[in-house]
Design a protein around this nucleic acid. Structure first.
Lengths: 293, 293
DNA sequence: GTAATTATACTCTAATTGAGTATAAAGGAG
DNA sequence: CTCCTTTATACTCAATTAGAGTATAATTAC
C-alpha cells in the first residue's frame, strides 16, 4: 500500500445568460465540458483551469469558484482526481472554434418552470410509477419533484440523482440493461459531466440568493428587468416584479447611471450599474437577493 | 510542460460538541489536523480519509462532507494537492493515543460571543488601528467585526483572512518580520491547518441553519435545551429559548421518546429523538433552523 | 389620437420573527 | 411542610418582512 501520485484533471462549468437563457460552454457539440490535466507549468489550480479553457475555447475566464473534487471512475491507469469549477461570464460576439454554448435546460428540462410545468410533471409521473407502493420512495419523489410545500430550486443534484436511481436518465442505463420506465431524457453528456453541471446549477442557484454574483452575468449597465430576467433564468422560475424591484432597491446594490435604455416597445427604462463598494461595506452571508416564488 | 501526477493529501476536521464547547480532534497537542496521503489501496477519497483518521486517532469517522481542495504550498517535491473534509461525531469515553480534542474557540476566540464581546472587541480594536484612515479597509473591518448591521456568524474565514492580511495572526508573520500591531493571538497550527479549521467552522455554521446536521453531534436522546446549547456552541451565539423551541416544534424535526431526563436541579425535561423520516419527507435547501440573533 | 407595451410607484394583507411574560414541576433549606 | 431556587414549558404581543395586487407614466406602432 504505497502513496499513489494521481493525475489531476481540472473541469470547468462556464455559465452565461444570453437572451434570457442560461447557457453552458461545451466541447464536442454539447457532449463534454472543457477540461484538462494539471501540468507542472501551472502556477495554481485556477491558473491551470484558465489555460485549459482558453486553449480549448478561446473564451476568457472571469469569475471562478471551486465546486467539488472527486476520484474519477476511469480504472486501470492509476487514479484520477477531478476538480470541478464554476465560472461566470458573458457570451462574446465572436465564435468559438471547437466550442459551443448550449442552454442548460436542454440537459435538465424539468428544472425550468418559467414556461409551465410540463417537463417537471413528466418527470414526476415517471418517478411516481417507479416508486409504486414504496412509501419512502414516494416521499422522496414528492419532496423533490412535488409542488406542495414549494418547489426548491436548489435541489438540482438531488433530483438528477433520483432520476438516475430510477434509471430514467440514459447515463444510468449505459452499463446495464434499461429498466422498465421510459427515459425522461434531457441532453446527454460524457462520463459524469452532466452530474457536474447539475452541481454547478445547484451552487449558482443557492449562491445567487445571498451574494451578488448575478452581476458577473450582466453587462456593465442594465435595466432592472434585465436583472430580473437573468435571476429568473438561473432560478428557473418567474419572480414578482414589484417585489423584486423593492428588494433590489432597499438593498442598495445598484445605482442609476443617468442613462436610459430605449426599448423596442414601451416606456424607456433607467439603466443601472452594480455598486462594487457593497462588497466592502457588507459581508455577504445572510443578505438576501430576491428569492424565488 | 508535462502532465504532473501529484501527491494527494486528505485532511480531516473532526468536530464534536462536549459540555457546551465545540471541539476539534488534533494531533501533536493541538498543532495539526489528522491527515495522510491518498494511497493505492484506498477505494475512494472518503475511504482513504477514514483509514488515516482511524489509524492516527482511533476515532471512528461518522458523518463526513468535503470542504475544499487546494494546491499545497510545499514547493520542490512535485505538487501537493490537499482535499479537506468536515466530520461530525461525538467524543468517546476512552482516550486517543497521540490525539487530543481542543476547543475550537481557542483557535478563534473572537468567534465565541456567548460569554461577552471581549475577544471580538479586542480584534476589532487592533483592526481599526490597522485600517487607520483607509476607508475601504475600515468598511471591511466594520462589516466583518462590527456589530451594527448584525454579526454574521458564517464569515469565519473572511475574518481570519482579514486578520492575516493585517498581520495580526502569528502565521502571517512567520515568513516576514512582524508588523506594528499586536497579535490578537488564538492558538496556532502548522501550515494552513488553522485556515482549514476556519473553513470547517464557516461551513458548519452555514449548514446547520438549513440542514438537520446538528443531530450528528447529539446522543440518540436529548433534551431541547441540550439541542439548543449545541446549536449555540456552533453558532458562537446565544439563542432566544422560547423562539428556539417554537421553531423546533413547528419543524417537526424531533419526537418525544416518552422518557424524561432528571437534571441536577429544576423540573425534569422531556427527552426527544430526531425523526430520521424527515430526510425523506423533506428536501433540505431552504428549510430553516433557528437563525442566530 | 388610440392601442399596445413596458416602466415605475403604491397599497394591503398574511406570515414570520423578535422579545417578553407567565405558569409548572422538580430539589433543597429551614 | 413551606418557601425559595432552578429549570421546563406554554403563551402573548409588537415589529418587520414577504406575498400579491393595483394604479399611473412614458414610450412606439398604427
Amino acid at each position: 500500500m504505497n502513496d499513489a501520485p494521481a493525475q489531476v484533471d481540472l473541469i470547468a462549468v462556464l455559465v452565461a445568460v444570453t437572451n434570457g437563457q442560461p447557457r453552458v460552454l461545451t466541447l464536442e457539440n454539447g457532449h463534454a465540458l472543457p477540461a484538462g490535466p494539471l501540468q507542472t507549468g501551472h502556477r495554481s489550480l485556477q491558473a491551470g483551469l484558465r489555460e485549459w479553457v482558453e486553449a480549448q475555447t478561446r473564451h476568457p475566464l472571469g469569475y471562478v469558484e471551486q465546486l467539488y473534487t472527486f476520484a474519477g471512475q476511469q480504472p486501470g491507469t492509476g487514479r484520477g482526481i477531478s476538480i470541478s469549477y464554476l465560472g461566470l461570464s458573458r457570451e462574446a460576439a465572436g465564435d468559438y472554434p471547437g466550442a459551443s454554448w448550449f442552454g442548460w435546460y436542454e440537459y435538465f428540462p424539468w428544472e425550468d418552470r418559467r414556461a409551465g410545468n410540463g417537463p417537471r410533471a413528466a418527470a414526476l409521473a415517471a418517478l411516481t410509477a417507479w416508486a409504486g407502493r414504496d412509501e419512502t420512495r414516494a416521499a422522496r419523489v414528492a419532496a423533490l419533484f412535488g409542488v406542495q410545500g414549494g418547489w426548491q430550486d436548489e435541489l438540482v443534484l438531488q433530483r438528477y440523482e433520483l432520476l438516475w436511481e430510477a434509471r430514467l436518465v440514459p447515463e444510468a442505463v449505459r452499463a446495464t440493461a434499461p429498466a422498465g420506465g421510459t427515459l425522461v431524457a434531457g441532453r446527454e453528456m460524457t462520463l459524469d459531466h452532466r452530474r457536474i453541471l447539475a452541481t454547478a446549477i445547484a451552487r449558482l442557484r443557492a449562491k445567487i440568493k445571498y451574494h451578488p454574483v448575478v452581476f458577473e452575468l450582466l453587462p456593465h449597465e442594465f435595466t432592472l428587468l434585465e436583472l430580473q430576467r437573468t435571476m429568473e433564468a438561473i432560478a428557473g422560475q418567474s419572480l414578482h416584479k414589484p417585489n423584486f424591484r423593492r428588494l433590489i432597491e432597499q438593498q442598495e446594490l445598484v445605482e442609476e447611471t443617468g442613462h436610459v435604455a430605449r426599448l423596442p416597445a414601451g416606456r424607456p427604462a433607467k439603466l443601472f450599474r452594480f455598486r462594487p463598494a457593497v462588497l466592502a461595506e457588507r459581508a455577504f452571508a445572510g443578505s438576501k437577493l430576491p428569492l424565488v416564488k
